[in-house]
Structure formats: structure tokens, C-alpha cells
Simulated scan of single mutants.
Amino acid sequence: MGSSVSTKQITQEKLEEYCQLTFLTKAEIMHIYKLFKTLGPEELNEDFKHRFPVEHIVKIFPAIRHNPFRDSIMRVFSSEQDGHFSFEDTLDLCSALSENCPEEVRAAWAFRIFDFDGDNQLSLDDLIESIERLTGLNENSEPRIDRPSSEYIAQAVLQEMDMDHTGSIAPQEFVHIVSRMPEFTLTFRFMP
């Protein structure tokens, strides 16, 4: 989002700017700010751009704290890729996962979350990792689904979504298909 805020509170002008740059309402932005400020009011009073460790951010968002993709979500939305979040990073996260975010935009963010190796393609390994995270771990901290089953499911997904037959799913293919799935719209969102 870029520009700085030099006051201890969000000005009306800055609030308007955030509304234009996100899919959030003024009330939602203020609610997120109040949550964010609980992490360190002194730090924010000194530097509005203060970056808190992701461990602190997940404390104020239980839906992310218990999400099997938590580490990937936090990696994608940390603008500095440093394991820390600014208030604006937090707004980006909440905006992308808000119910007002267009499906195509939300799907593009989802693609980045599922692209574990960061190569801008969803490979078979990325899909297997997603399946294993979705099915969870057993009491021994091992995937509940066996490897052949997760590979079988991943191959089926790849076959359905790889429209240009490259062996992986490109961002455009993912967005095209996923943004039209009603289940995606209902499940890939949260509001603090």
C-alpha cells in the first residue's frame, strides 16, 4: 500500500485511502486496527510501520492460527518476506480473504498460497502437499493419508485443471477454474 502514516491513529484521509485500496469497509479496517494495536501499542505509537512476528499476528486471528496452510498464508502476505507483518500486510491479508474480494482476486491469492515451492506453477508435489495438509496429521505427526492415495488424488486434480497439458497448473488455469467453484467462495475467506 506504500505511503506512511505518521500519527498514532488512522486519520480519516488514510482510512479513505485504505478503503480504496482494499475490499474492506471503514468499520472492518478500524476493527482490524484495534486488533493489530493490541499486539504492541507502544511500538505502533513510535512507528506505525512496525512489523510484528507472524506468531503474534496469528494470536489475533484464530481462523489462521488453526489453518493447515498458516505458514504459507503468512509467507505470501508478509510484504518483506521476513516472517513479520505490518498493519498494511494485515490489511492485505484480511482484504484478500474478505467476502467482498472478487473471486478471481481471491483465487489468485490462493494460487500463491498453494504454490509451496514458489515457482509460479502448481506441480504434482504442490498438490500432494495441499492434500496432506487438508487431511491433517495422525497422532504420530504423519499425514493421515498414505502417499499413494495423495498422489492418486493429486494426479486426478492435475488432470482436471491442467488445460494446456504442461504437467502443472498455471495461475490462469487455477484462477479460471477455482473462481467458478461455489465451494471456494464459501470456504476461502475469513473475517477477524
Rank of each mutant, 00 (worst) to 15 (best):
L158F: 00
V175W: 02
I177F: 06
R189F: 06
E80N: 04
F77S: 04
C19F: 07
M30T: 07
A154R: 00
S179T: 06
H56F: 09
F184H: 00
D146Q: 12
L137K: 07
Y152Q: 14
V54W: 12
S130M: 14
D47R: 14
S72C: 01
T25L: 13
N120D: 11
S141E: 15
G40D: 07
E99M: 14
E183P: 01
F87W: 14
M161D: 04
H50I: 09
W109T: 04
K37H: 12
A110S: 10
I32W: 10
F188P: 05
I32T: 11
I177N: 01
K26D: 14
F48M: 11
S86V: 14
H176I: 04
E129V: 12
V58A: 03
C94L: 09
D162M: 13
E183I: 15
E173A: 05
D146V: 13
R51H: 08
G2Q: 06
H176M: 10
H165C: 10
N100K: 15
N67D: 14
Y18G: 07
D47C: 13
F114T: 00
D47E: 15
L91T: 09
L158P: 00
T11H: 13
E132Y: 13
D119P: 03
M163G: 05
F174R: 12
L127V: 04
D162E: 09
I73L: 09
P148L: 13
V5R: 15
R70F: 03
I177Y: 02
L24N: 08
V5E: 11
L158M: 00
A96N: 08
V157Q: 00
S86F: 12
S149P: 06
A154E: 05
E132V: 15
S95Y: 12
D125N: 04
T90Q: 00
C101N: 05
E13W: 08
S95N: 10
E88Y: 01
S6D: 12
P192A: 03
S3H: 14
P62W: 01
E88T: 09
F87L: 11
T135V: 12
R70H: 03
M30C: 11
N138Y: 02
N120E: 11
I131S: 01
E43F: 10
I64D: 08
H31A: 10
L39A: 01
E104G: 09
A63T: 05
P143E: 02
T22P: 03
P102A: 10
L44F: 08
S6F: 15
D119Q: 14
E103K: 15
L124Y: 00
D92P: 03
V178K: 07
